[in-house]
Design a protein around this nucleic acid. Sequence first.
DNA 1: TAAAACTTATCGCATAGCAATAAATCGTTT
DNA 2: AAACGATTTATTGCTATGCGATAAGTTTTA
Lengths: 270, 270
Amino acid sequence: MATARKPQLKGVTSEADGKASDPLMVASVEKAFRVLSVFDRHHQALGLSQIAAAAGLDVSSAQRFTHTLTRLGYLHKNPDTKHFELTVKSLDLGHHFLRASRLVDKAMPYLLHLSKETEETVNLTMLDGTEIVFVTRFVSRHMLNTDVTIGTRMPAFCTAPGVAILSRLPEAEAIAVLDKSELKAYAPGTTSKKSDLIRKLKQSALQGYATAFEEFYHSDASIAAPILDPKGYPEGAVNIATSRSRYEPDEVVTKFSSLVMATAHAISRT
Amino acid sequence: MATARKPQLKGVTSEADGKASDPLMVASVEKAFRVLSVFDRHHQALGLSQIAAAAGLDVSSAQRFTHTLTRLGYLHKNPDTKHFELTVKSLDLGHHFLRASRLVDKAMPYLLHLSKETEETVNLTMLDGTEIVFVTRFVSRHMLNTDVTIGTRMPAFCTAPGVAILSRLPEAEAIAVLDKSELKAYAPGTTSKKSDLIRKLKQSALQGYATAFEEFYHSDASIAAPILDPKGYPEGAVNIATSRSRYEPDEVVTKFSSLVMATAHAISRT
DNA sequence: TAAAACTTATCGCATAGCAATAAATCGTTT
DNA sequence: AAACGATTTATTGCTATGCGATAAGTTTTA
């Protein structure tokens, strides 16, 4: 009867062995997060078995974790449909981060100021692996789409903030990020050849700012400058995001480059 | 030797017994979240024993959970100071919520539109227990302080969005919320008497909007309307936040009441 | 330089959490 | 409507998992 136990970890094996060898790893925690991250735009409300399938758990585990997470307030169960969805409490953890981050704390007033001065959309982003994450944003009246929210991720290599950050990373680290990245073309302007990217990083380092024109989004036009810690290590980036329909590339540079750099420097110095 | 085990759960006992009786509860998950929520503005980077103390765990547990959370990418350990801090990945969970929420999805374009139209700060909030939570915000150029971020909580009873939502809750539920709330005065204008609050709820229900003038913040002036699901149950609120220095209470009402209501209705209908 | 405080590593044991199963509920089909 | 299939809820015995004590190593303080 115990024979049926092992094969039930289907496709997750590659991850699982890593933990087997790690006695300090609490597997339940990872499973809980797996359950939570099953929910997204296309999976807003899910039944128990759907969750089990999507998270790679058996129904019993799914039962235990949904129960636990419901009691903790992160999930809500609709008593009629028996489906679960994420609750607004899911914002708590992110909020703790925003409050605890020295960088966010320093940056906020400067970003607000920059957004008033330029009347354009201003973002603070940080690097996580090969991606940049949107940490705070001030959206201008010119913004059209509302898809980018706090926590949104984009590949670093084809965004202005990503390039700005990479340009100040020790070269080995920057190249490691590029190597881990899937260098594919997302939009008409994507720079996706490694050699070109390295050149772009060097140029951005010299200039003190980075740009991206239709590299990720169609019609995006963005300029960014890195925020550095006292040792010169990049902690994040400030960027101004507009659209090709409103500015030509060279206009973006002439209008905004010194402003983003000044803002980034001010934050770095604080 | 087993005698020393029980007394180590110091002040958390009241919560802990609830779980003992619940066989589906996975205690590790709760502990993991307790570790994560130890970090805030005044606790940005913490050592192991500080975490243990703050989360009410022994050092061994703290060790295991910090290790687990570090491997999962939610914590970062500074190799020099041996201190932990939250990483930007902490925004993921909240981002999943924002993407998975039908309400957010519906509301975003309308909120953006309202912010352009009024040039004032516009928020989407939801109720969680006795508090409202800021889910999305479009900050205007008039905004001065940057303290309110996504995920920020305020007592429902003394905020315009809170009152707007409570006003559409079944009366018993609304009163239950008031009873659970600590009805204290936060600012010069706080309505903190239960009878006054009930009157305020009724009036807000009739009007279709709610206002708050210096009820929570000093100098805040806010007007809100509830977003209702097809059954008329309040899912959240739209509000416009300005300051007393820029508008008199009656100006806020005349300028913005119909706009917030129109926006809230439009979202409700979608 | 001693010692106090904290972090890292190790380990045996008990229990917390696992997975299988059974009962109940829902919703679909003929 | 009845009967079936699918999904959710409840229960249970077993053991692997995670617990917490302890000891060894490291850094900070006096």
